[in-house]
């Protein structure tokens, strides 16, 4: 499976789902967006994005479709499926629980 991304397992999935939550995006745009939003803190190597995208597609959370970009070139655009939307909500909830727990531990320590 994917190489270590320097991220907590499952976090990259969450970021991807979140990124295409409102509009379909192609792979490059997803990568750029993740780097942008995180102010380049999360150094995601661009390539590691693709196995994750394909995994999410296989699991039915997202679906890819070839369409023309603004420049007229064909690119594969990824969008959330309805199952993916539900999955995202669960993932977000789980993430919040986990980060709360970690915060708690850090504060107590």
């Amino acid at each position: 499976m994917g190489k270590p991304t320097g991220l907590v397992q499952g976090t990259l999935d969450l970021l991807i789902l979140r990124t295409i939550q409102h509009e379909p995006k192609h792979g490059w745009a997803v990568a750029k967006r993740i780097q942008q939003v995180s102010n380049d803190v999360l150094k995601v190597q661009q390539g590691s994005l693709y196995p994750a995208l394909y995994r999410l597609e296989r699991d039915g959370w997202i679906t890819g479709r070839w369409a023309a970009t603004e420049t007229g070139r064909e690119a594969k655009f990824y969008s959330l499926t309805s199952a993916g939307r539900a999955h995202l909500q669960r993932e977000v909830a789980a993430w919040e629980r986990l980060s709360d727990a970690i915060n708690l531990i850090i504060e107590e320590a």
């Binding site: 994917g2 190489k3 661009q46 390539g47 693709y50 296989r58």
Partner: peptide, 23 residues
């Protein structure tokens, strides 16, 4: 360079498709 090792990447993608169940 930014994309990374393409052959390795291809392997990873293939693995996603093929081996996860067995794995």
């Amino acid at each position: 360079a930014a994309l990374g090792n393409v052959p390795l990447l291809r392997e990873d993608v293939r693995a996603v498709w093929r081996w996860r169940w067995l794995d």
